[in-house]
Design a protein around this nucleic acid. Structure first.
Length: 298
DNA sequence: AACCTCTGCAACCGCGGGGTG
DNA sequence: GCACCCCGCGGTTGCAGAGGT
């Protein structure tokens, strides 16, 4: 006999089979508890998993480092104005900060491209002159598709512009010309490497043109030495107006003797880059570094 | 006038080099 | 040495306008 205390006051006297059945029930209860916990935890995990997956699907991107949405496509005049104003007053510095500081929905790369190819001061518009065409053809025959190096020899022209011009016009011209007179033949006849004096366009080579004593070989050599032998023209009309407007110490007005032309300024004693960076970064430009002239060379 | 094709050019994209932590 | 960022370059794309049918 054994007694089980059910309460402080009641005592139950149970037989052996009863005890066994109680043990069995208890054991079954434990098993049930185990399975319940097991499956409920599984269920819980499953639930958590589902929730996490849903959250990931729905909101993961918002948990990532937010990627600013950049505008693409053509630039509006307002965007141009913002970019121009910002760079004129602050300089570009780090390009990736430019759109943020200037309040533009563009990426830095796009701003840089826009400035270099379109807004930069001193850019020439319109088709290339025969002289420029000759230079491009000659330099391309010696340098290949090094558009930036070619552009360095053409003041006011961008590499993109020259590249486009080549693909849309000059390439065909060269192909046509080569059908009649291969480059190697021109080379032999001139007794000099292609690029020195050969002309594809039928006009005189640049080196022989009136009023220009520069030899193309010199240009190429200088180009290889990272030196530009050609005069570098810069500061288009709007830019000089801005200089006056901003009162950067420039007082001389410039006139053109040969009919209407853009006002350019000669940059003396200083490198072009120094003066430009002075201007762009807001340093004062002293008068003695500008001399009035139609076209200003360094 | 409507549609299609071509052309020019501005802008994008991907890659490589250089600098920095 | 590695990862990251920025910059510059060259190839490519896409769009708008011109020109042709």
């Amino acid at each position: 006999m054994c007694s089980i205390h059910c309460s402080h006051t009641t005592q139950l006297h149970l037989s052996f089979p009863s005890i066994l059945s109680l043990k069995l029930i208890s054991f079954l209860n434990s098993i049930l508890d185990f399975f319940f916990l097991y499956f409920s935890s599984k269920l819980f995990l499953l639930l958590v998993h589902t929730i996490v997956r849903t959250l990931l699907k729905m909101g993961y991107k918002s948990l990532e480092k937010p990627k600013p949405k950049h505008r693409k496509g053509l630039w509006s005049p307002e965007e141009d104005e913002r970019l121009r104003n910002y760079i004129i007053h602050h300089g570009h510095g780090c390009w990736s900060n430019v759109p943020i500081n200037a309040g533009l929905q563009r990426n830095g790369k796009s701003c840089r491209l826009r400035w270099i190819n379109y807004l930069r001061p001193g850019l020439k518009k319109g088709i290339l002159s025969p002289q420029e065409e000759d230079i491009v053809l000659t330099l391309h025959s010696s340098l290949g598709n090094k558009w930036s190096q070619i552009a360095q020899q053409l003041p006011g022209r961008t590499d993109n512009e020259i590249k486009n011009y080549w693909h849309s016009y000059l390439k065909k011209k060269v192909t046509r010309a080569e059908k009649f007179e291969p480059i190697s033949k021109i080379q032999e006849e001139n007794g000099s490497p292609v690029g020195a004096t050969a002309s594809f366009s039928g006009s005189d080579s640049f080196g022989k043109k009136e009023g220009c004593s520069m030899d193309l070989t010199q240009i190429i050599n200088n180009n290889n030495n990272n030196q530009s032998a050609l005069p570098r023209v810069m500061f288009a009309e709007w830019f000089t107006k801005d200089i006056d407007h901003l009162n950067y110490g420039l007082t001389q007005s410039v006139t053109c003797d040969e009919g209407p032309c853009s006002n350019y300024y000669e940059l003396c004693n200083d490198s072009q880059e120094n003066v430009l960076s002075d201007f762009l970064y807001g340093n004062e430009i002293s008068n003695n570094r500008f001399v009035g002239s139609n076209f200003m060379y360094i």
